[in-house]
């Protein structure tokens, strides 16, 4: 058995606002009361601290997700499933043409450990990066406390289906999942199960909509059912997806309730391609060569459907598979 050596995070002590600064290769990260500053050999960038932390939270919690996590139009990561690219301007046509872009590759444990410590140090008490804007405190100000319970919360990853004995449990008031204020009208009834004697544990059914109505977080796809590599990852959405997700495979959206608007851009250049307005019952594919950001005027239930086959990114990038799921 090989035991990985502990990762040493390159960071400084607190600055005058109380925040540590971090370094990953030639990338430097620091924050003050309002902003996060990123520097690399050919450029520098600034983001609002709350926007940066919301994006960082998802990148960390999702283990760098599928494909590209753009924190905004300049900075982000590319998951190579074992290593991760950290980039600035690489997927921005103007930066590329001006040759101001920069990219470095890190082992996943290295960048994960650095991002974990950055998120922990830069998240103040009362600010929950996963919450909707009206359900959390402020990210701003000089350093005051932390919010470890929020930034390390359990991510649901069912191995078969939520509620199956031994799998992810249901949500209820008692385990800290009250119904969200936007979903007070969602029925909380459970399916009627009538097992024959001896089959009590083999009849599994649950109220997915009630389960989602009790989600504490936004824009956080979590696995509720598994059919091979086919993963149902529903999530509740409110306000704006804090990242721009660049696909390395086809991803599907099934709108369960309410309305979402997706702004779709070319994955590599950022050129605008389409706006997709989805309402309850709508189904849309996100091709493997685009990036997308969602807007939700009211908290909405979205079923994100993923194919977790690890061979897909290479098959698509090499042209062996198309970037669309169905050729018509």
């Amino acid at each position: 058995m090989t035991i990985a050596a502990p990762v040493k995070v390159d960071s400084t002590g607190p600055n005058t606002d109380g925040y540590r600064s971090f370094r990953l290769g030639e990338f430097k990260f620091r924050r003050d009361e309002y902003f996060v500053y990123v520097e690399w050999p050919t450029g520098k960038h600034v983001m609002s601290a709350d926007s940066f932390l919301k994006a960082l939270q998802r990148d960390v919690a999702w283990q760098f997700f599928y494909g590209i996590v753009n924190f905004d139009g300049v900075v982000g990561t590319v998951n190579h499933y074992g290593t991760v690219d950290l980039f600035a301007g690489r997927y921005n046509d103007v930066y590329r043409k001006a040759e101001l872009d920069h990219l470095e590759n890190f082992s996943t444990p290295m960048i994960k450990a650095t991002f974990d410590e950055m998120l922990d140090d830069w998240t103040n008490a009362g600010f929950d990066p996963f919450a909707s804007p009206t359900e959390t405190g402020s990210a701003f100000g000089i350093k005051h406390g932390d919010n470890r319970a929020a930034i390390t919360r359990h991510r649901v990853t069912a191995s078969r289906m939520v509620s199956v004995p031994g799998d992810e449990p249901l949500r209820n008031d008692e385990n800290g999942h009250p119904v969200n204020r936007h979903f007070l009208d969602v029925a909380q009834d459970e399916p009627e199960k009538h097992p024959e004697p001896g089959f009590d544990g083999e009849i599994s059914s649950f109220n997915l909509y009630a389960y989602l109505s009790r989600s504490q977080v936004t824009w956080n796809p979590s696995v509720v059912s598994v059919c091979g590599d086919s993963l149902y990852c529903p999530t509740t959405e409110e306000y704006i997806l804090p990242i721009i997700h660049g696909n390395d495979r086809v991803e599907w959206f099934i709108q369960l309730s309410d309305e979402l608007i997706w702004q779709v851009e070319d994955r590599d250049s950022g050129a605008a391609l389409a706006k997709v307005t989805m309402r309850s019952g709508d189904v849309a594919a996100m091709p493997a060569d685009i990036r997308h950001q969602g807007y939700a005027p009211k908290r909405a239930m979205l079923l994100v459907w993923e194919n977790a086959d690890p061979a897909l990114p290479a098959l698509i990038s090499s042209g062996q598979l198309p970037s669309v799921p169905v050729e018509i």
């Binding site: 709108q255 391609l273 389409a274 997709v276 019952g281 709508d282 849309a284 594919a285 169905v326």
Partner: peptide
């Protein structure tokens, strides 16, 4: 049903339908 507003793409790529 919602819709796709195309700026510079082919709507068929989004395989958009309603259940």
């Amino acid at each position: 049903k919602g819709s796709i507003d195309i700026i510079d793409d082919d709507p068929k790529r989004y395989v958009f339908s309603n259940i």
